[in-house]
């Protein structure tokens, strides 16, 4: 099969299937590439409806009616009533109730099975959409954003703070204790030049660590 006939086959005879594939790809792309969580969920719904559309379209039969019995096949319709009346007047055929349809009439009705499958899928789809939106609201409450990149940044920063802080806190407490001791010694008046030299580098270090840490939450 050469390229031209392939394209014409797809675009002219099976345009519907092409559009389903395009819708599916739009949904898939949105789920992968969009950073906003609500956009991702809309993409998920588009993906879902594309699949439902495909299922419904394979249930279509040419020149077929909807999957509800016409009046002449309806078990409780006027026709059934008539045949019941005929029964009482002594007609031998159709002795009781409705009859199974012939294969010829079966062709006149659309296929009900995909409709049933998709009907429940839609309702379950909205329930899961609601659940996902609840999770989105919770994320927004916790982090103040629903953009994925900002969210990852915030998570990274929170991780950093959580992993670094116990060490720094311990060191700082130690240094503060030492500084207090020195200050007390100084206040007592027993200040010697030797101790001053020793204390100098130590005193700068707590300050610098505090300075390093201070701007971090503001980032």
């Amino acid at each position: 099969m050469d390229g031209g006939s392939l394209v014409s086959e797809l675009l002219i005879e099976r345009l519907n299937y092409c559009i389903y594939v395009i819708l599916l790809l739009i949904g898939l792309w949105a789920m992968l590439a969009k950073r906003n969580l609500v956009k991702k969920l809309i993409g998920m719904s588009i993906f879902q409806t594309a699949i439902i559309l495909f299922y419904v379209s394979i249930a279509v039969k040419k020149d077929a009616t909807i999957p509800i019995y016409l009046a002449e096949h309806d078990p409780h319709g006027s026709h059934a009533q008539e045949s019941a009346d005929q029964n009482t007047t002594g007609n031998q055929e159709s002795s009781q109730g409705p009859v199974a349809l012939q294969p010829e009439t079966v062709k006149g009705y659309a296929n009900p099975l995909p409709h049933v499958l998709m009907l429940t899928a839609i309702v379950v789809g909205v329930a899961t959409l609601g659940l996902a939106l609840a999770l989105t609201q919770r994320i927004y409450q916790g982090y103040g954003t629903i953009e994925e990149d900002e969210l990852l940044d915030k998570l990274d920063r929170a991780d950093e703070r959580a992993s670094v802080s116990p060490l720094i806190r311990e060191k700082r407490n130690e240094q503060r204790r030492e500084a207090n001791q020195r200050a007390r010694a100084r206040a007592a008046g027993g200040l010697v030049a030797k101790g001053k030299q020793k204390a100098q580098p130590k005193r700068t270090s707590p300050r610098s660590s505090v300075d390093e840490e201070k701007p971090e939450p503001k980032k």
Binding site: S45, A59, I66, M118, L119, I122, G125, V126, L129
Partner: peptide, 19 residues
């Protein structure tokens, strides 16, 4: 239009309404 009236009804109430 495709003859899936039940699915269309569900989509009109659920998809277009509730969601």
């Amino acid at each position: 239009e495709m003859g899936a009236v039940d699915v269309a009804f569900t989509e009109a109430t659920v998809g277009a309404g509730i969601s």
